[in-house]
Nucleic acid binder design. Structure first.
Lengths: 365, 365
DNA sequence: TTGTAGGCGTTATCAA
DNA sequence: TTGATAACGCCTACAA
């Protein structure tokens, strides 16, 4: 009896087709096939079956062969949920982002997915618009025994502490905090803006305006502040700053506000990201008939794909996204494996993209 | 003893700050706080605690108050993984997409996330480029006891059967199959193309070319075929079809190929999606100095945000994304709650966006 | 309304 | 190398 597995009919019929076939994976009564079912059918103990699925499991070759054969026949797959119960490790990470993050950087999620997949780690995705809505996310992360968190959104100190207190590793992506230490992967915003400002200044621009992003997002503050600081160093003050929300539309709105102001168009416009820069360019060209870069230089930040399209050819700083994502994933998984590791912040320099949206002189760069 | 919970010190210190505070949620020994810990501290049974967290649980008010108070103090949160073990329901769905899907429609993921969140359902995200890589996904979905699957990518019949055999509801988004029944949410591609072709024809266009997407993606086939069929009905044959891969770049490449061919530029170019249409427009304008729409009409399909930007003002069919996403989520969760429901395909009509990239005559529309 | 006890499907420890 | 057994933390009859 034990030599004759009971319910392999359907499974084996399917096996003819694909090399790696998919079985029903259910017993006659409709239960999922468990390691116990396999054990019974193979005439071995349940723990033997379990060991066959463990990396360095102490199993003889014949045992493994016997078990695997029956397992395949029954369509057995170890139950991940039960495994989490005993190992306390879910192989799931949470990715928290703003709605707008994915709209601006769709590539980010694709790359994260790729990197985590390489490690056999699964991504639970949380997108929230409001910071307060994130409180729910925290509870879910805890309840599902998530191994670690990548956060590409703003978190309050309270919220970041939630993870720290529970020993859940957290890595910020393009966000960080001044008030307390937390691991983060960032792009060198000040350095990038400095490069842009220098190039613009050398090319002769003397009047500047800035379109910044959300005030409370440090990445944006750093960019705006980086530009302002460098401009002051160069002896240029009295710079108008218009606030957008990182979206294309908000860039256009900011530009209209700028044009309506007493100052009018500057020589150069420094935008905190590419989306807003493109919004500015379109409004400048189509509503104010300005020639770019002859009458107005525009620079952005990010290096999104659309910026390179011939309608924009945006001069900008490209974030090394693949490298940053890989670093973020490594940093997180290192801490999942070794929670003792201290917080670490890593900053990557962006790459200058020349473009044609700004007159630039990079002689000494 | 039982009246005096042992380890509430840390938890209660944290409570001072936030209205909804986050507790450590661990015992002195570092274990997670379990319902059993709460029960012991409250001097009640473990099942009483469990019942307090169940919707219509049979619990007296005083019991609930007593338990909840202790639970809050200890930072107890029910363990979702253990719950899945007994209920056989994970409240997790898988979303399977191509890498390119998120690049083309970042809004899709944001909307899905929003809708699932409303139902307290979590999204496990899988992005795969190759169809064969999806086989791994199937196993993961099974092992993690995923409740249901939204698939915005192509699946082989074998792969779709994997889910059906195991009773895991599956809803395709903008994909479907001719060979076998499966639930799907689609946009009316033929209808949309017919509308576009009619408008172009009435405006006087007589020579047409088509840029299609992947041959084996039915949505693309439908669009291309829809346009071709209508053109034939109107007595127009001999239409060149160039194949892209739905990306902006491939649109440009297709257009170059078209221009290099003996036929040269047509009156109107019908692209299977907006991204390729924009690629065509840019190459037409910037490499061939063609005026759009005077010398060339271009239409797309999808209604992506960028198409409305002043550099493109693309004439296209907008998919009612929010409605389609809501329908997909409803359709899936209905089947999670009631697996007996038969497969259903729902098709939504798109909305014509006039744009300025094509000469159009919509007199009778 | 409350408590008791069995089960969900693994992994891990310990003998054999 | 293999097998028995005890967690893991919850839900759910069933009994009180």
């Amino acid at each position: 009896m034990t030599e004759n597995p009971v319910n392999t009919q359907r499974g084996s019929r399917d096996e003819k087709k694909a090399g790696k076939s998919h079985h029903l994976g259910r017993t006659e009564e409709g239960r999922r096939v468990t390691s116990y079912d396999v054990a019974k059918a193979a005439g071995v103990s349940q723990s033997a079956v379990s060991r066959c699925y463990k990396q360095g499991g102490n199993v003889s070759d014949e045992m493994r062969a016997k078990v695997m054969k029956v397992a395949r026949k029954l369509g057995f797959q170890p139950n991940a949920i039960a495994r989490i119960m005993t190992t306390q490790r879910s192989n799931m990470v949470a990715v928290i982002m703003n709605n707008s993050t994915n709209l601006c950087y769709p590539e980010l999620l694709v790359q994260l997915s790729r990197r985590f997949d390489e490690r056999g780690v699964h991504m639970l995705l949380f997108t929230r618009e409001q910071e307060k809505d994130i409180d729910n996310v925290l509870d879910q992360v805890w309840q599902y025994q998530i191994d670690g968190v990548i956060c590409a959104a703003r978190l309050s100190q309270q919220q970041a502490l939630f993870f720290e207190r529970r020993g859940i590793p957290l890595v910020f992506y393009n966000y960080y905090h001044r008030d307390f230490p937390a691991s983060a992967i960032c792009c060198d915003n000040e350095g990038g803006e400095r490069m842009l400002v220098d190039g613009l200044y050398r090319a002769g621009h003397r009047s500047f305006a800035i379109v910044s992003g959300h005030k409370d997002v440090l990445v944006n503050v750093d960019r705006t502040q980086g530009a302002l600081t460098r401009l002051h160093e160069l002896g240029i003050g009295d710079i108008a700053v218009y606030v957008g929300d990182n979206s294309y539309d908000s860039g256009g709105r900011a530009f209209r506000a700028l044009m309506r102001s007493s100052k009018g168009a500057p020589d150069a416009l420094i935008c905190a990201n590419d989306a807003m820069a493109m919004g500015c360019m379109d409004v400048a060209r189509y509503e104010y008939s300005l020639h770019i870069p002859e009458q107005l230089s525009v620079v952005g930040f990010d290096g999104v794909a659309m910026g390179t399209w011939p309608g924009y050819k945006l001069t900008t700083i490209e974030q090394p996204l693949e490298i940053m994502v890989e670093a973020a994933v490594n940093m997180l998984m290192e801490r999942v494996d070794n929670p003792q590791l201290p917080p670490e912040r890593r900053t990557y320099s962006g790459v200058f993209l020349r473009g044609e949206s700004a007159r630039m002189d990079l002689s000494t760069c």
